[in-house]
Design a protein around this nucleic acid. Structure first.
Length: 115
RNA sequence: AGGGGUGAGCGCGUGAUCGCUCCAGCCGAAUAUGCUGGAGAGGAAAGUCCGAACACCGCAGGACACAGUGGUUCGUAACGCGAACUUUGGGCAACCAAAGGAAAGUGCCACAGAAAACAUACCGCCGAUGGGGUGCACGCACCCACAGGCAAGGUUGAAAAGGCGAGGUAAGAGCUCACCGCUCUCAUGGUGACAUGAGAGGCAGGGUAAACCCCACUGGGUGCAAGACCAAAUAGGGAAGCGCCACCGGGCUGUCCGUCCGAGCUUCCGGGUAGGUUGCAUGAGGUGUCGGGUGACCGGCAUCCCAGUCAAAUGAUCAUGGUUCGUCUCUGACGAAAACAGAAUUCGGCUUAUAACUCACCCCUUUUU
RNA sequence: UGGGGCGUCGUCAAGCGGUAAGACACAAGGUUUUGAUCCUUGCAUUCGGGGGUUCGAAUCCCUCCGCCCCAG
């Protein structure tokens, strides 16, 4: 497998999988977003992104998804391992670049590790 | 130079690294993995306001109802779209906007005003003719405003029964005439909307149909989550066989025997959910050129293949070059900005959003030659 | 993808061609020793925005904006 790849097998796609994580997952809250994760029995962790319609128009929502995916792709080691991870984005988010997104997520993940 | 009008165009470029989707080739059992190469958002992809293609369902024929459209003639697969033209209105102009019928019927027109629709008569004008009164020169004058006549003028309102001038009259009135307007008829031109000319009528008659309505034309319904194919688990259905030795339930009169059915077991079949495949990227296609047409558009030839996702691919970082703006120490340096917006079955339109920039033609004003 | 509904004062709302009702809230005054209650008065200037029809539009038509709901 490539070091920074993110093929389709690493993306959450089924409604059932999403429901499972929402019901049983652990939650970490950040500025305008939340990270929910739950251990799976697969060799790799999988990512799902959920952006509410109220966040903005289609261009804005797509951009946020791409930023989140880019951060996950380049810094996978800092996220929980062998887990299904869902990142939900709520209205009011102001992040617009990958650097800001990485900073915001990194701080949330570090806090959780210290606990 | 300034101010407008109309119609078009463009929608940052290049490279490197890390990724995503699809296609082709190689390796391979493989649609896995890997490698190489190629392609990968728009002018509106948007809103979903119209029209089609395509698919399934429905359907003898006709009429009614309902909905939409509405100057004419073309264009188009079709349209509520486009083109050219017509009339009316706006603008000094370039140019822009609007469009069936109110003489088939019904409804509505607040307030104000006499009256809002079979016109009427509040103020008003007249009072010739008839009536009353007074005077006398006895058939005339004056007075009254009673009968009656009139619709010119006034008032209201968004809107009040042609306009203006002259004649006419007691006062007036298309009552008469000229010009203008209107209606009808005829002729000519035009495919047509309509235009022009001639003649006649003397004036018909308020507005509103984005009120009901009438007339003409058009429309079967549902939508790619349409539809087609494959098809797990669980539950249930059908058929065949076994099985009633034994156990459980029921029928054949109460019981027993017997027998039949169910249950049970085995095999097969069909429907069909999750899920998957397909529909799904060659098309009323693009580009160039030649020809026809005032134009929308049409035809011939050549050439090209150009996204295909489904919790949603088309991205991120860096470098560099343009464009615009600002500042400064101004042949340059530094800093900033770049809109609206993301394909979802596919096309043709319409509507709306849009930074900066570019082009063509036309009009008006001012100045110079 | 298709369909339906709503938008009127700070809030809840009526009105559906002819002056934008009403309630609560708010403000001022009165009553009261002071409050509450009660009484009187006031408070819509883009009826979501923009065009059009009409003498006249919250109402009719067109077009945008926002919100909510339904089907699969």
């Amino acid at each position: 497998m490539k070091q920074f790849g993110l093929p389709k097998c690493c993306v959450l796609r089924k409604n059932g999988e999403f429901k499972r994580v929402y019901q049983a997952g652990r939650r970490l809250y950040g500025e305008g977003f939340a990270i929910i994760y739950l251990a799976n029995n697969l060799p790799q962790s999988r990512l799902g992104i959920s952006v509410q319609r109220k966040v903005g128009n289609a261009v804005r929502r797509n951009r946020i998804k791409r930023l989140v995916r880019e951060v996950f792709r380049l810094h996978r080691a800092e996220f929980p391992q062998q887990a299904d991870i869902i990142i939900t984005v709520r209205p009011g988010i102001t992040i617009n670049t990958t650097a800001d997104m990485y900073a915001a997520m990194g701080s949330v993940l570090l806090l959780s590790e210290k606990r």
